[in-house]
Amino acid sequence: MLKCIDLSVSYGPVPALARLNLSVAAGEVVALVGANGAGKSSCLKAMMGLVPGKGGLELDGKDISAATTRSRVEAGLALSPEGRHVFPEMSVMENLELGCIPRARARYHDLVEEMLTLFPRLRERQKQAAGSLSGGEQQMLAIGRALMSEPKVILLDEPTLGLAPIIVDQIADLINDLRERGIAVLLAEQNAEMALGVADTACVLETGMLVKTGAAREIAQDSSVRSAYLGAPSEEESA
């Protein structure tokens, strides 16, 4: 479904991501795990064409590495950005409407209904300004807005950042739901416990380099990952 080949991102002379190779299949959840500054967000932004990146990017076998963000969204890629970035002075409905791209417009009413069913809190707050919603509600709106474009692949950038544990659980349930719908999910998360719990495959990034990849369950058992990201004592500390 989505495949990136030797994807690199640099901000001036500073490399943020170095020759990353990964792929996400339909109905698969891939977690990008790493500390702050590991290159997770840069990877997602480069995939969306929001920051310049080098390397190849294929969606359904089609090269989209030179496409504009608009074309990537039309092709089936969507991003729920870190920090949510909803339109604060616009209503929940207007935010959802803006996410509905021309390709999905014929199904606009069905899509809105789907989003309001998926996120019942948004139904209660349809006419409310997005800026007045709680953090969790804004996150749901950001994901709902991305889903309004009927994406094949959704990129979720730190969807649980700053949210209460109960909302984190809801986001995990939502990701499972997206998997069941056959949507490919690429999840960039600092909350490794949540990410490895929900993902099928995991990639561990450190200072822009892919240092480990494999089944999420196996990665979650890796002692170095457990000590670095899951709060478990390292082997040396245990000894």
Binding site: T69, V73, H85, F87, E94, S149
Partner: peptide, 20 residues
């Protein structure tokens, strides 16, 4: 008009959702 207001509120979010 909605797109214009969106860009006025957030250039970045407008790019994220694929607005020109």
């Amino acid at each position: 008009g909605r797109q214009l207001r969106a860009v006025a509120q957030s250039d970045y979010a407008s790019r994220v959702i694929g607005l020109d």
